[in-house]
Design a protein around this nucleic acid. Structure first.
Length: 414
RNA sequence: GUAGGUGUAGCUCAGUUGGUUAGAGCGCCAGAUUGUGAUUCUGGAUGUCGCGGGUUCAAAUCCCGUCACUUACCCCA
């Protein structure tokens, strides 16, 4: 058992081989898909002014009030590790000129939230996300959702579902809140105490409560869309219609709400079974963020990589399947051969052939065993006898056959 | 912040009402005739039983504390 001082801090973990190969696969395929949809990568700092997050996410949201890693630098500036990626991306876009007005960007990297860790929740976790900036257009929302599904299939994920809803425009918010309160008020006494408080502070949040008593009341409440303007309803209709024409199946979930204040219109979540309580692998939506003197409209999503990996794992997709294997393993016997084989290995590596060898003076059997474990397709055996004759024994590990070859032929066969 | 669970070999875990040399499987290393890998057989190494204190003739086992991990609530990816 490792001593505690050797462990990373709570809620953060090392990603080591072979796990890292799954991460690489996910990142590589994401880049391929993003390129097809013409999204470009941006890399923003992990540390930002705290106010960037309080202003864009909402200064009463849980993420901002109790989950940020905040600190003061030596100049007394209030800084925070980013708890999500949209704020930074939008800051970058708002700072730019005309050409970024319709930016399509993606990012991947660590995010930080100082919460109690549990299944599917780390304090340092990783997100892959995109932002498509531009005036609200329901077709853009649909395209982003289509991209999201494309990603899932590129990764080989089965069994994910999309839940979609609208939370309307800020102008609708008052009507929605009033409408909900009106509908719930007669049964307020049925709710537990904390839910009654939320009735006052944030009624919307009651919709996705896990509390049975709350759900019972919510079940009889009309869907939020009924309190919205005709425009907001038409917006959702167009999103759904566009998705249908792309043959994308979504489930409308009137109870879906989001925890960040910047969302408008369309919001959605990708959920997957077999993940534990945190079953959302991705959250997305359309947003409107005031930043400086500008208002940025956009639509995007962020996927939790750790949760994605858990979902893939429940589909039987594991890191081992993506671990690279050496093209060739070199077995040596004798001092002179070992020395020559290191030179051979170097030459092969410079020619782009991945190659592993044992630098000790272990027995052939032990070296063969290691070659097998490493998954080498072929093994070169060269001892002092081969060295004298100027030949190489090349063994095919799959069928066990082997032959003696000279250097030119060896190079051809590798 | 609140509540439950767990902490024994590199990994997964067993350890019976406290009883003396703490186990298994996997992995690792070595051997089964001379330089050949998935199998089989034989042998071997490795533990401050999370840490600290207490009860006891005796503690991995009981009690207290502490740390870590884990699951769930809140909320979120």
């Amino acid at each position: 058992m490792a001593s505690t001082s050797l462990q990373p801090i709570q809620g953060m973990s090392d990603i080591s081989p072979p796990d890292v190969y799954l991460w690489q696969m996910i990142e590589e395929r994401a880049r391929e898909v993003f390129a097809r949809y013409r999204f470009q990568e941006i890399r923003t700092p992990l540390l930002e002014k705290t106010e960037l997050f309080t202003h864009s996410l909402g200064d009463t949201t849980d993420v901002v009030t109790k989950e940020m890693y905040s600190l003061q630098d030596r100049g007394g500036r209030n800084l925070s590790l980013r708890p999500e990626g949209t704020a930074s991306a939008v800051r970058y876009i708002a700072a730019g000129a005309e050409e970024t007005a319709n930016a399509r960007v993606f990012y991947m990297g660590p995010m930080f939230r100082c919460e109690r860790p549990q299944a599917g929740r780390k304090r340092q976790f990783h997100q892959i996300g995109i932002e498509a900036v531009g005036a609200p257009n329901p077709r853009a929302d649909a395209e982003v959702i289509a991209l999201q599904l494309h990603l899932l299939s590129a990764w080989g994920l089965e069994g994910a579902k999309i839940r979609l809803n609208t939370i309307g425009l800020p102008e609708d918010r008052a009507a929605v809140v009033d409408g909900l309160r009106e509908a719930i008020r007669p049964r307020l006494s049925e709710l537990p105490e904390d839910a009654q408080q939320r009735f006052e502070t944030n009624v919307l949040r009651l919709l996705d409560s896990k509390d049975e008593a709350v759900q019972k009341v919510i079940a009889d409440v009309p869907p939020v869309i009924e309190f919205m303007s005709a425009d907001s309803r038409a917006y959702l209709d167009t999103v759904v219609e566009t998705l249908r024409s792309l043959e994308i199946d979504v489930e409308i979930d009137p109870s879906l709400v989001r925890g960040l204040d910047y969302y408008v219109h369309t919001v959605w979540e990708v959920v997957h079974g077999g993940l534990g309580a945190q079953n959302a692998i991705s959250g997305g939506g359309r947003y409107r963020i005031q930043i400086g003197s500008k208002t940025i409209d956009g639509v995007g999503f962020a996927m939790g990589v750790e949760r994605m990996i858990a979902a893939l794992g429940s589909n039987g997709i594991t890191a081992e399947q993506f671990a690279p294997k050496p093209a060739v393993f070199i077995v040596s016997l004798g001092e002179a051969a070992l020395k020559e084989n290191m030179l051979l290995a170097q030459m092969l590596r410079y020619r782009g052939i991945s190659c592993e060898m044992d630098l000790g003076d272990r027995k052939v059997k032990a070296q063969m065993k290691r070659a097998d474990k490493a998954g080498a397709a072929q093994v070169i055996i060269r001892g002092d006898t081969e060295l004298e004759k100027g030949i190489f024994v090349l063994k095919n590990m799959a069928d066990g056959t082997q032959r003696e070859v000279e250097l030119p032929e060896l190079m051809e066969l590798l």
